[in-house]
């Protein structure tokens, strides 16, 4: 009996110790991939990771609060026609600004770097750079989509709004301050036929990208969801002219 007791206690303790150790191993593996030789740099990296975590948590809270606000607003305006109209206006404006998730018929374009070094005809490529998807390519495609009357566009989950910039950051592309990388999925809501016709025409931008060997795929969809812009739109200088 006594021996059994000891065995069970030791087993439970070993269980606790290994579970904690394995979780810690995985946590460290997940966050601190490179250990710097300098103590100070490690401390700074520590700080950055901690702040990032805090930021993510706060951001989640913000999203939650926005949801509650929406609900409260809905409840408050339920029995009042004027405020109901205002509420509808707000919802409509948010949709136009790109602050809500929207859905409708549209097109999904996938652009990806080609890693084979061969063009579409099977020849070896002279300039490997031409087989990569650059920020210019994304800008051109978005421009063509806008030309074909796109009503909402997103790239890898980042909604394109008035203030969106698409820049080259070395080996990644930055949009809305977020880094994204190949493969790029561009989603647009609008007339699928119009999109397809204007994008896939001979001599169009995608035609040349395909010819260079970039992986290009377009899919017409009856129902596509474009994500909401998840930043804060703030204006400092503009005013309505009297």
């Amino acid at each position: 009996m006594h021996k059994k007791h000891i065995a069970i206690t030791l087993g439970i303790m070993c269980f606790a110790l290994t579970i904690a150790t394995v979780i810690q191993f995985r946590t460290v593996d997940n966050t601190n991939k490179t250990v710097s030789s300098s103590l100070k740099e490690n401390a700074l990296r520590d700080e950055v990771l901690r702040w990032k975590e805090k930021y993510d948590n706060t951001y989640l809270e913000l999203a939650e609060s926005a949801k509650t606000l929406e609900e409260v607003r809905k409840q408050a305006t339920q029995n009042d026609t004027t405020s109901m109209a205002k509420q509808q206006e707000i919802t409509q404006n948010n949709m136009l600004l790109g602050l809500t998730e929207v859905t409708g018929p549209g097109i999904e374009i996938t652009l990806a770097d080609n890693n084979t070094g061969l063009t579409s005809e099977g020849n070896e490529v002279l300039d490997i750079s031409s087989q990569l998807v650059h920020n210019d390519d994304l800008i051109q495609v978005i421009n063509e989509l806008n030309n074909a009357q796109a009503e909402a566009i997103s790239v890898n989950g980042q909604r394109v709004i008035q203030t969106s910039s698409i820049t080259c950051e070395g080996n990644v592309i930055k949009i809305n301050g977020q880094k994204i990388t190949s493969p790029f999925t561009i989603k647009a809501i609008g007339s699928p036929g119009l999109f397809s016709g204007s994008l896939n025409r001979i001599g169009g931008y995608l035609y040349f990208m395909k010819k260079d060997g970039v992986y290009v795929e377009t899919k017409q969809l009856d129902n596509i969801t474009v994500e909401a812009y998840n930043g804060v739109i703030s204006y400092k200088y503009i005013k309505i002219k009297e």
């Binding site: 030791l10 070993c14 269980f15 579970i19 979780i23 995985r26 946590t27 975590e53 805090k54």
Partner: peptide, 26 residues
């Protein structure tokens, strides 16, 4: 028997630890 309990505890802990959620870095 004691040894067996220790080994079983370690193995169980390792298996559950692999599938357990990560601890926040903080």
């Amino acid at each position: 028997m004691i040894l067996m309990a220790i080994v079983i505890g370690c193995i169980l802990g390792a298996v559950i630890g692999i599938y357990a959620p990560l601890v926040p870095y903080t």
